[in-house]
Design a binder for these strands. Structure first.
Lengths: 227, 227
DNA sequence: ACCATCCAAATGTCCTACATTTGGAGGTCG
DNA sequence: CGACCTCCAAATGTAGGACATTTGGATGGT
């Protein structure tokens, strides 16, 4: 519903808000190309300048990317993800790694306390996919591994914590060139299964211990250990 | 070179970058009024449209606030603070409280490991101010209390963690109407001093224990101080 | 000294025009 | 028939002007 302005807030701000909502609602999916400016102009009944200001705001927020001669594409759907990503990119990788580990440990502990039967079933499904992806390409395995850990944190039931973890992880795995060879390590493999077991058993201490051990293993693999 | 990011950076984006830098550098302090668009236009040698798009972007980022008929004022100097603040405002206060506590605990632990002699001296100075503010107005005490805990986390030496904590705290203390009567509690008072002692002694376990106890005390006071 | 009025200044919105870049349509040549 | 080149429509980028709207202070009268 494209309503006309009635309040004292600037028109461009209202338009930008509508665009944000369209992105958040999925009407403009990530990766898609949004309608050109002149079409938005006639649909909204505002001038191209106003539309451009609203679009420019979202471009600087990192939600959109304008390609001259082509169109404007949706690049992200979370404002926090972009600003956190920029901040983490400037930070010391070790510092970012510590914060991420902190969130993951707490998320694993919470999962053992709050995970439902459906959550556990979902985790086992994702874990199966992760095991299956060990023989596939590296990118697919990294994706499956992240999907599993993300689901663990989400199962913890603290959406804010989960979102911070979720937005912190990709930048780190991108910055650090990990994804080395942590698939063939049987210890890591066993720890993943022990983690789900601890969550299912409702043992927060064991779950957090598994998470801590996993992060430690990952850190060891990252540092030297070039053997 | 596979990556040829020589794609022309829009002029408005460059201008917005300059404005951001001016804000971050302190040339445009928070609260001040920036030059009017007309002046920026002639100073930068670009059209008013371009200047307005850059300003509008920063307005939507939350860094600026435009007041028609008056001028444009600097509202914040950290992009992450704004987006984190918005996200936390939508979150469950309990969830936000947990994340903040998590960061504070780790920050206190790190402080015991990495704080320098100057850091400890600074902490004792801030702690004196906090003690002195116990008899003053409530707002002043809350400010002094936050300044102390913020300094503890900063002394931990993880800037990313400190920034997240710093940006997470105001929203929480604003949301929850705490600042109740946690100044007259002698236990809380002693714990603050024990925390600095543990940091100076380089005892991470004791420091984290003090932090945990402090958060627990605060939570108890918040929940119903009756029992 | 107080108050209503007016005015300059600043932002908000719209308009036209042109430049620049891109992707594809269409034709050409091997 | 396929690969390649040319050209054009489309989309965003930039510029400049015009007018509306709101604000804060100056102005002038009571």
């Amino acid at each position: 519903m494209l309503s006309s302005p009635q309040r004292a807030v600037p028109l461009a701000t209202q338009v930008a808000g509508q665009f944000k909502q369209l992105i958040a609602a999925g009407d403009w999916p990530v990766g898609s190309r949004i309608p050109p400016e002149h079409r938005l102009t006639e649909q909204l009944g505002v001038s191209r300048n106003t539309v451009r200001e609203a679009l420019s705001a979202l471009v600087h927020l990192g939600l959109l990317e304008a390609r001259p001669g082509d169109g404007t594409y949706v690049r992200a759907d979370s404002e926090l993800q972009v600003s956190l990503g920029r901040r983490v990119a400037e930070a010391d990788p070790d510092d970012a790694f510590e914060v991420r580990a902190l969130l993951e440990h707490r998320g694993s502990r919470r999962a053992a306390l709050h995970a439902t039967a459906e959550d556990v079933a979902h985790l086992r499904e994702l874990l199966d996919r992760r095991d299956a992806a060990r023989t596939g390409d590296l990118a697919g395995f990294v994706e499956a591994d992240f999907a599993f850990h993300r689901a663990v944190v989400i199962a913890g039931g603290n959406p804010l914590l989960a979102e911070l973890y979720q937005h912190l992880s990709p930048v780190i795995t991108q910055t650090i060139s990990d994804s080395a060879a942590l698939d063939h390590d049987s210890t890591v493999h066993d720890l993943h299964h022990h983690l789900v077991d601890a969550i299912e058993a409702g043992d927060p201490d064991a779950a957090e211990a598994c998470s801590v051990a996993l992060v430690a293993e990952g850190r060891d693999i990252l540092r030297g250990s070039a053997s």
